[in-house]
Design a protein around this nucleic acid. Structure first.
Lengths: 340, 340
DNA sequence: CTATTTTACGAAAACGGTTTCGTGTTAATA
DNA sequence: TATTAACACGAAACCGTTTTCGTAAAATAG
């Protein structure tokens, strides 16, 4: 019943040759006679022989596995990045092991340790919020010191020497804010998260810069900083109740579509009375009513680039330590939550 | 610089003992003297020794990896299932290798073959639409015959002997349709996909049954069958233009929220003029305007159960072939797209 | 017809662990 | 004091490959 996988040894025994002969025959080695090769190959095909990946991994110290450690997979952005990584990696014969840190420093560390002992050839990561808050990157440093390549994307840190891929978050926020100002909006609000998140910080800077460049003062009462990326409906409702505004830039699409709902609930017309822009061009943005203008982050592209960078490093024999940071341009996708 | 991982052999050489002694000492074996154990353990701790996963996998023919092959990861449902699997598997010390078939038969086969040669201890899968259309399950049968445990969820087939986890799709559709009828809806439409998809078929059956049980004839013009799960805006628009209806049941949340938009565009009030229910309690459902009443599939739960079933099989020595099918109850989540 | 080169294959080491079994030394028992 | 048991450790096999190296036998050259 359980005809478990056939091995080289099985073939060798059956055909009364040595294991080495079988191995060479299957690789079409010149060393082996035509006769023997045909015999071995026919037998292997008949019994559907496939070499054992684990044995090969042990031998050449390459697993053809990539470890992906991300905070979350439900956010559309991370979702598309994983898709991009998967796509490129699979095409190159690599498998993708996904681990979720769930924004927890400890989980991030545990996941990395689980994978770092031979299970993978390299890491693609986006830091958990806790990690960025603690600014403790020793787990990353250890891994890179062991010679395991790492690519950081989106939520990165400059304290670790490795390849990095980000979008120009500041530019994205700048462009979006400018767009709102051009529409004649006077009181542009910002709903973001605490500054320890690298992306939130950059986006806040872009927002601020756009205002200042237009000679508009930055007003604290127009900025809502939530402690985490978690949705906090109460906080946003309160913000609406206590703040007069005619436009909002949100740090993600969830905050943005929720803002649309509250705005409508409070009797505003979107986009006539209030314009709203979010980050992440996901399902929510496309299918919200009205649909949401967003700063697209090109997650899938980012995933592909990250995977390419990592695999290039993995397959590069020369261990020269040159690290690059790739910065992608965000794109403003205009929809019905702004006047276009 | 590159202080690559230390091995048992390194420790043995350094401490002038044998490899076996080191191995036993680290496992706190009774065989080894207190002195030697302390010496070895201290040294191992100092140099942060961690056994090589690959070597261990080769030895005990267990990788502690689970292969997950799903059509897609962007749909919220699959997303949550992966989360559930990840959660349970990680807690049990397993890693999750995610492969996307992208609804393609060939990709599904290739992915399984890549993983089946030692990389994983078992599969958790949901079939691609192409696979369900072709009804070709040989890749699954081969794998199970090799003794690799498989758990199928959501999109399953009865032609493969393995554990299965599904929700009662028929009941879900039945309950939803009944709800619409109770509201006094007379012309309840159905937007679904072709019957080859197991879940679509069951849901259509539930819809039909609910109508018949209420003595209402099933009308073909009220049923839109799209060829795939892919969004086809044109088809849905046409359907709206050519059909008179006061309620719609959609086979997923995307079709449903898009239907809400078209309905509003056409001047209907939701839910006053037309009620809409979808499947999948995802982001779209929660944040749509109006929010969407849905049949919740409890994906995370499904993932956890699948993972538990698989790991139980993997770790069960006795190879008794008892397969179970777990059927979860769907839940109707009432929101603002229906009158409640 | 010997000397040399091919040809065709096998033995063994290596990857990094685990585990069984054997054995020399010491300590306990008769 | 002789015998046995306990202790502490090492050798070697094993998991499934790949690959280097050695070597009979056959083919070719001289």
């Amino acid at each position: 019943m359980l005809k478990s996988k056939i091995t080289l040894k099985d073939i060798a025994r059956e055909l009364e040759v040595s294991v080495s002969t079988v191995s060479k025959a299957l690789k079409n080695s010149e060393e082996i006679s035509r006769d023997t090769k045909e015999k071995v190959q026919a037998f292997a095909r008949l019994y559907n022989y496939k070499p054992n990946n684990i044995a090969i991994s042990l031998k050449n110290k390459r697993t053809k596995n990539i470890g992906v450690v991300i905070p979350d997979i439900v956010h559309y952005f991370f979702n598309t990045v994983v898709r991009g990584i998967e796509k490129y990696a699979n095409a190159k014969g690599y498998n993708v092991i996904v681990c979720l840190s769930e924004e927890s420093f400890d989980k991030e560390v545990i996941n990395m340790e689980m994978l770092a002992n031979g299970s993978i050839d390299g890491f693609i990561m986006s830091l958990s919020s806790e990690t960025q808050a603690k600014k403790d990157y020793n787990h990353l440093k250890e891994v890179t010191q062991q010679g395991i390549p790492v690519v950081l994307f989106d939520r990165i840190t400059n304290e670790v020497d490795c390849d990095k891929v980000v979008i120009d978050d500041q530019l994205g926020a700048y462009t979006a804010t400018q767009k709102l100002l051009q529409q004649g909006r006077k009181r542009v609000a910002l709903i973001t998260t605490d500054d320890y998140l690298s992306v939130a910080k950059s986006r806040t800077e872009g927002y601020t810069k756009a205002l200042l460049d237009s000679g508009i003062p930055v007003r604290d009462e127009l900025i809502l900083k939530l402690p985490t990326m978690e949705m906090d409906e109460e906080a946003i409702r309160d913000f609406f109740n206590n703040t007069e505004m005619d436009a909002i830039l949100c740090v993600n699409e969830i905050f943005a579509v929720f803002s649309i709902r509250i705005a409508i609930e409070k009797g505003f017309k979107v986009p006539e009375d209030i314009s709203i822009i979010g980050f992440t061009d996901g399902m929510l943005a496309k299918y919200a009513n009205p649909s949401l203008t967003v700063v697209a982050q090109h997650g899938e592209r980012m995933g592909e680039i990250s995977a390419k960078m990592l695999i290039d490093k993995v397959e590069d024999e020369s261990d020269e330590e040159i690290f690059q940071t790739k910065i992608l341009e965000p794109t403003l996708v205009l929809r019905d939550s702004t006047i276009n």
